[in-house]
Write a protein that binds this DNA or RNA. Structure first.
Lengths: 342, 342
DNA sequence: ATTAGCACTCCTCTTAGTTGAGTGCTAACA
DNA sequence: TGTTAGCACTCAACTAAGAGGAGTGCTAAT
């Protein structure tokens, strides 16, 4: 168990290092207002904290730097919840000024403002398209052998895909088909559609339409394709500002990771509410060993969920980011549920 | 006018520098197969070429480096058209293996393959949505005050946008409206729609539907919004490989530029056929003063046009990139016009 | 006209020395 | 007994000096 004084010193060191990105010496700590004891005492405590694994030295005679364990402790026990600046709140509110109707717009704007406010990189996941419910299904023929399938979901998202028509497919075939599909599929979620298409709808269609088999197969692969939630980025190059990323290789690896959808998706904790912090090697990705990722989720309507991640150096301003994400999560949730009800 | 020998030496120097990214000395040139004269002679010629502005020195006793004027001359006069490797051609062909129907897929894949083959960054512009022709117009109501407008274009693109419905808008109003819109707008290009909507369609609608005014306004702003061609990137971080970009600031500026749609769009020469090369400061953007940009266009169907850009260091392998772009342009054009006719 | 030879330049790499921030330990102090 | 002043020690960061080498420009010989 740490003594009060050790807690105080650990906090001071982490705060200081987060601010200045320089190893922190005993003298520097001793000069702080709230510290009443001498550098020598601090040195003794520091040595103890190092032995306990909370601090590290970059070399024998350098100041101390928080270890991952140190950050973890700081985040878990020393992070006094902090209000944020009214100017920041105002800026967040400005996202909702426009009376925009589209979810996508709001999320895009949120990504930009978050990256601006934190000076880190933000990633926002939109609603999971797979869970949207079908509002209308239609097919627009383009030529004798190609058509576009269009699915409008209840919250206004439009999913569309081209596919090939089987030969000898008539306009009346198409019409029948669309009617059947609408009858059967409206109200279902997109992820259920695939199953339904192949199971019940197919047999019904086969009774009415020639070569329904091919058709359904086209349609299934077509609607299945675009299955992930959309991803929005803010401040992709913000990390260039951080001294720990003055290394091209690190930056490159992270930027490359962000181009890979699957990797990005695995940064998140789906279906877990609250704010999650992963520090350095707590991240599964090797590329992220110098980064911390703070994630949270927000609601879109009653069923849908979106997610937010902030990526920064392990020396991230946790206090501020957590506070900002908290506001952001609540505001987005509120905006999207209010939007729904009127 | 340059002598034959000067041409030969200039070419050798540029080729060598493109390959090794190191200032080229007289000895190194003299060792080449095709060079029959001594280092001393080469030094004299080099001094002349420098005086003429084609070469530069990084310091008094360094080898020579091509100046922008040197690259320009090389590109204009010394670039013997070169066939490309059959393996490369094969890889390009692989884009079209899948029998993909969607334009977007092919372009996305092309961007990736181009960046892979060149090891530079590629940017592909899709067709200009504004010039697509309307195939079908429909409106799907979502709630009492919101709806989605959907425009399907003749080549299968789907443009959609949410908008607010005026109060007291009935289902039959909506139906009438959609009918009128389809009557009037099918076959028009998207860019013409805006004008038409405001001019003739508005007056017609006003006769049939209450508060058509508000409605049209919503619709115009809605369809106008998404007006640029889609942009696809390949190999965004490839420039990290180039020694001239081992400078974080340069990389950052270019990456930031690539996030700005308007800046990216201004890299292209719309409506000019052929292959264009802009070297260093010939680019309008200050951020690009160390880059060369090679652009070209391809056709999508009979009316539409897409564009390709490759961004690399001024020390770019012009010969190879030009050859690759030439193949790419023709293959894409062919694929998209063939696609149309069957 | 071409080229061998040579003095000269200047970048790059290495080594040595200096400075200064910071530590750990010991001994004195309250 | 906990705290602190004092001091020797460590090591990164900076500076200066010197060696090596790739390359040039000029001159004189071929």
């Amino acid at each position: 168990m740490l003594t009060n004084r050790q807690l105080q010193i650990l906090q001071a060191i982490v705060d200081d290092f987060i601010m200045f990105a320089q190893p922190v010496g005993s003298r520097q700590i001793s000069k702080k207002q709230e510290i009443t004891f001498s550098p020598a005492t601090i040195r003794n405590e520091m040595a103890d904290l190092e032995e306990l694994g909370f601090l590290e030295k970059t070399h024998t005679s350098s100041g101390r730097v928080p270890s991952e364990k140190g950050y973890r402790f700081y985040v878990d026990h020393l992070l006094s919840p902090q209000g944020i600046n009214s100017r920041d709140i105002q800026q967040i509110q400005s996202i909702f000024n426009d009376r925009l109707v589209e979810v996508e717009h709001i999320i895009r704007k949120s990504a930009n403002i978050l990256s601006e406010l934190t000076s880190y990189t933000s990633i926002l996941l939109g609603p999971d398209v797979q869970r949207h419910r079908v509002k209308r299904f239609s097919i627009v023929p383009l030529s004798s052998d190609a058509a576009v399938a269009i699915i409008v979901t209840s919250n206004g998202h439009v999913e569309n895909r081209m596919f090939n028509l089987p030969p000898n497919f008539t306009a009346s075939d198409l019409e029948k088909m669309v009617n059947i599909l609408n009858e059967r599929l409206i109200g279902e979620s997109l992820e259920d559609i695939h199953k339904k298409l192949e199971a019940e709808v197919l047999t019904v269609l086969q009774q009415h339409v020639q070569s329904a088999d091919d058709f359904i197969r086209s349609l299934v692969t077509a609607t299945m394709h675009n299955s992930e939630s959309k991803i929005f980025y803010g401040g992709k190059t913000n990390m260039f500002n951080q001294p720990e990323f003055h290394d091209l290789n690190k930056v490159r690896m992270i930027l490359d990771l962000m181009e890979t959808t699957s990797q990005v998706q695995s940064l998140f904790h789906p279906n877990e509410s609250g704010i999650h912090i992963r520090i350095g090697s707590e991240n599964k990705q090797l590329e992220m060993e110098n980064c911390s990722v703070i994630t949270t989720t927000y609601s879109i309507g009653e069923e849908q969920q979106g997610a937010i991640a902030i990526i920064g150096p392990t020396r991230m301003d946790y206090k501020r980011v957590v506070a900002l994400l908290d506001v952001m999560r609540m505001d987005l949730t509120q905006a999207f549920t209010k939007n729904r009800s009127d």
